[in-house]
Design a protein around this nucleic acid. Structure first.
Lengths: 343, 343
DNA sequence: TTGTATGCGTTATCAG
DNA sequence: CTGATAACGCATACAA
């Protein structure tokens, strides 16, 4: 017994009307008599009629669903952002289809392909760490698919973007470390190709430069898969600790990297910030409960999701092709929790 | 410029063939000549043809997408479960549409209604805390919609279910507290109507009974919205602390409740487990980094999601109506991290 | 005010 | 081997 829904035909047959009359009655068309309308509406209600959205999609050439592509759902930042996206989507009658790339360019391509041919009406994308070839995304945009980037954006693609001020976040955090007395500040970074990595590194460098501190290349350790592969983080931190002049603090450039660094330091018996300064981007909900509480740079993930979805709605609802695009740059929250006095 | 996809018609026209021939060539039908096939396939490739899945859905009466209904996406347990669901779905060519209820029965109804009106081939549901009337879910199942429950199941609805052994989890945790010397163990619980709450409370009670400890009603504090509303948790914990014979330990029955209790205790200057024992269900990723590390009952969320999706696939792929249903009961992981010696 | 015919993109059935 | 036609469920231009 398959899930068989009632169709307009069933109503028409039962009431001795034509499908078009029923259709119009259901849509409350002005050209249907009140009696017929009442008849149809009541019967539809009674047999629990719901229009088939697939048929509607085929007709209207839109599905009222949007696709979301992130690297990993089970990540505080992304799940909070998806929460925000879903809220706005729900309020506007859109379904949200999610898919994850696990930082793989190939999966990104496949998902993109799948979703666009799946006739989603629009896409919200945070690109994968591995992706270097954006021609495919460019292509679907140029073919008229509304796309909004969030978090990991592609600078030279012209469309709505939603980010935090990554430069400022990293700058402020680095400066805070400097003000706390740290001088040898290392950076554990995400894939270098990501916009967010570049912006954050720029902030890091600027803060150091401002203090007249020369950049020490050995202090910059990149994790191409952004901490998704824990071994990468391990290598990075071990590398730092093995240096002759060890850094005295670490700036971690993503959620996973922050908790990864913290975990590794702890495993080695090093306490933060007593033995090593640490501050990083994070949206985990327990950083305040760590003892001593961890200082973090927090992104307004929920709000970013909401803004992204609202931006997408704007694209979806505009009849004219949109040519002016916004880059929404929200403020990151620098949350200082540890005593600022250096050990 | 709308996103216009290439259709079979375009290929047919360009190649001077009929749509049926093109369709068959694309599906590699045996009745098409190799030359024609080659011609069609190459051209399709060239112009980047992809079949319109909406048209296919209409024809095949299935959408190759499934719906997931949870109370909140931005929750470690659920986001990990969704991760697992998406992985299996992806491997099997299904899209995942997520929606959240925020523990509201009304939103659950609306989402259910929206998803079932044919746009989804099956559903994976974790019911909302508020829901008491399950007739609607019963109804859609009886009408043939494949449904799998996970985590929060409805006991008297007959379908596949995926849970952890909640009884055992709570039982073991409570016994651990008892073995550590705690005697006045309180329980901060989720909505009483939830299956998981009942099972966990049964485990809690059994462990106490085994030790000959009488149940103290004042020690059981319920949070109808499962910690989604922080004030609820606050009231619960404050209530416990205000009692003349305060409890010496707390069993927290959900993710949000565990971190909620911890946060509140900390805010009051009470340290766990020195001043108050605490153990609870949690899937947060930082519990090991708290100092002293927090003991938790962890659910294999990712695996639960995978099992749920696999169960749903079984329903989706069976031609016969399924009459035998499994309840997959996975083992919760009791992770003891704090020193077991009572203060 | 209501009914008939057409099309959205695809495949299955039936002809040729 | 290939083509014309109907059907999936719905909305709408066109008839009546």
């Amino acid at each position: 017994m398959k899930f068989e829904a009632v169709t307009i035909k069933d109503i028409a047959k039962a009431l001795g009307l034509s499908t078009s009359t029923v259709s119009r009655a259901l849509r409350d068309s002005y050209e249907i008599s009140p009696e017929t309308k009442k008849l149809v509406l009541e019967y539809a209600e009674k047999i629990n009629y719901h229009p088939n959205p697939i048929a509607l999609s085929l007709k209207e050439r839109r599905s009222r669903s949007i696709g979301v592509i992130v690297s990993e759902i089970a990540n505080s930042f992304f799940s909070q952002a998806i929460d925000g996206i879903e809220s706005i989507a729900y309020n506007n009658g859109y379904n949200v289809i999610i898919s994850q790339t696990r930082e793989s360019q190939e999966r990104e391509q496949i998902n993109l392909n799948y979703l666009t041919s799946r006739s989603v009406d629009g896409l919200i994308i945070s690109v994968s760490a591995e992706t270097s070839d954006f021609s495919f995304i460019k292509d679907i945009i140029s073919r008229g698919m509304p796309v909004v980037f969030f978090d990991r954006v592609v600078p030279d693609i012209d469309t709505h973007k939603v980010v935090v001020d990554n430069y400022r976040g990293a700058f402020d955090a680095t400066r805070h470390l400097l003000e706390s007395g740290y001088r040898r500040i290392a950076a554990v970074t995400n894939s270098e190709t990501l916009s967010i990595t570049q912006d954050r590194m720029a902030g890091y460098r600027a803060a150091l430069a401002e203090e007249g501190i020369a950049e020490e290349p050995g202090y910059i350790r990149s994790c191409p898969h952004g901490g998704l592969v824990l071994a990468e983080v391990n290598t990075a931190v071990e590398g730092l600790l093995a240096m002759e002049t060890k850094p005295d603090a670490i700036l971690a450039l993503s959620d996973k990297l922050t908790t990864g660094c913290l975990r590794i330091l702890k495993n080695k018996g090093l306490q933060v910030p007593r033995d090593m300064g640490l501050i990083g981007f994070s949206n985990s909900d327990l950083t305040e409960l760590i003892d001593p509480p961890l200082s973090i740079i927090k992104q307004p993930a929920l709000e970013m999701g909401e803004v992204a979805m609202n931006s997408l709605l704007q694209l979806l609802n505009s009849k004219q092709p949109v040519t002016e695009f916004n880059t929404h740059k929200l403020a990151p929250q620098l949350i200082i929790r540890t005593s600022s006095v250096r050990a």
